[in-house]
């Protein structure tokens, strides 16, 4: 890996809720290098979006960073002021969201919203900004860009709106792009278009990219590396090939087996029993132990550390090696 673009160390984020403090992100660490796509995958409520927003300096309302450090291109951004964040966002790090319609201003034309990036950050004139906007729209595959510039967001289909969002995100040549469930609201064929577009742009510009998804298939298609999140922690990391071929955490293994594949021949799926824990009262020890077929006494008492399994490959399970080698103890 050449230059590290993003380094996250032991990040923890807590919400103040009427029922007490809720730790949504509990000690998360990872890196993203130049030209590398990291997928963060996990079920809803596992802390993916909170992590992503925190990286963008958008700590949600009633939440605070309890601990940890975020470094973007070698610069510690943990204590930045609002003004400093505004300069960083768009220029160095950008984000796209699941629902492009609510992320776009409905009362302004799409062209205006793209061109605004150049006017505000680059202090370019109106004409020049519009010219650049047309170029960007063509780059992200919006047909007939010149004419569509003056249309409002609601005139665009879901897929086209997401392209507009990508154009805005990429306008200022950021180094790092965070995509939070960018295709979840889209149809399969349109999802394929958007994933291909993201991959193309990412390769062409050697972007660092974080793609957040709950869909293991999307991750397999879009990412180089993967971090699996469960109940606010990263439980496993590695390259997609490493993790998909030999999962080293029971949760990852469970997720893989819960997805229907052409090979299962319709046989019953191995569902993970139970539900994710209540983050207001997470279980002692390993947060996964109540659902884990590998769990033993140790799991109920000691929260597992990250076990290094190789270069940039780790699992937060006491029995990672056992899981990897496929010695399945079964339930009980």
């Amino acid at each position: 890996m050449t230059g590290v673009l993003l380094q996250v160390d032991d990040l923890a984020v807590e919400f103040d809720t009427p029922k007490g403090p809720l730790r949504a992100v509990r000690g998360v660490s990872f890196q993203v290098g130049e030209g590398e796509t990291l997928a963060i995958v996990g079920e809803s409520g596992s802390g993916k979006s909170v992590t992503a927003h925190t990286l963008m300096g958008l700590v949600p309302l009633r939440a605070r960073i309890v601990s940890g450090r975020v470094t973007i291109e070698g610069r510690d951004v943990t204590g930045l002021s609002d003004k400093e964040w505004r300069e960083l966002r768009g220029e160095r790090i950008a984000m796209i969201f699941q629902d492009p319609l609510s992320a776009l201003n409905p009362s302004l034309t799409v062209g205006y919203q793209i061109a605004e990036m150049f006017r505000r950050h680059r202090r370019l004139g109106r004409k020049e900004s519009r010219r650049l906007a047309v170029g960007l729209m063509e780059q992200v595959g919006i047909p007939d860009a010149e004419r569509r510039l003056d249309d409002h967001p609601h005139r665009f289909s879901g897929g086209m709106r997401q392209r507009v969002m990508i154009a805005i995100a990429l306008a200022l040549d950021p180094r790092l792009l965070i995509a939070d469930e960018p295709t979840t609201a889209l149809d399969v064929t349109v999802q394929a278009q958007i994933l291909r577009l993201l991959r193309q742009r990412q390769r062409a510009d050697r972007l660092g990219m974080i793609i957040i998804s709950h869909d293991l298939g999307v991750v397999a298609r879009a990412a180089d590396r993967v971090a699996v999140m469960y109940a606010g922690r990263i439980v496993e990391t590695g390259t997609v090939a490493e993790v998909y071929e030999r999962p080293a955490h029971p949760y990852t293994l469970g997720l893989m087996r819960a997805v229907p594949t052409p090979r299962d021949g319709g046989a019953p799926l191995e569902a993970i029993d139970g539900q994710p824990p209540d983050l207001l009262a997470p279980p002692d020890g390993c947060a996964f132990h109540p659902r884990c077929p590998f769990a033993r006494d140790k799991c109920r008492e000691v929260d597992p550390e990250q076990h290094e399994l190789g270069p940039r490959r780790a699992s937060a399970c006491h029995f990672a090696e056992e899981v990897m080698t496929g010695v399945h103890t079964g339930h009980g």
């Binding site: 394929a192 291909r196 999307v218 998909y244």
Partner: peptide, 22 residues
């Protein structure tokens, strides 16, 4: 071809039919 699957990481340059338009 567009439906993502767990095996997609294996063949990066697989023959993918990406439909144009909406």
């Amino acid at each position: 071809s567009a439906a993502p699957s767990l095996d997609d990481w294996r063949d990066d340059e697989r023959r993918e039919i990406v439909l144009g338009g909406d």
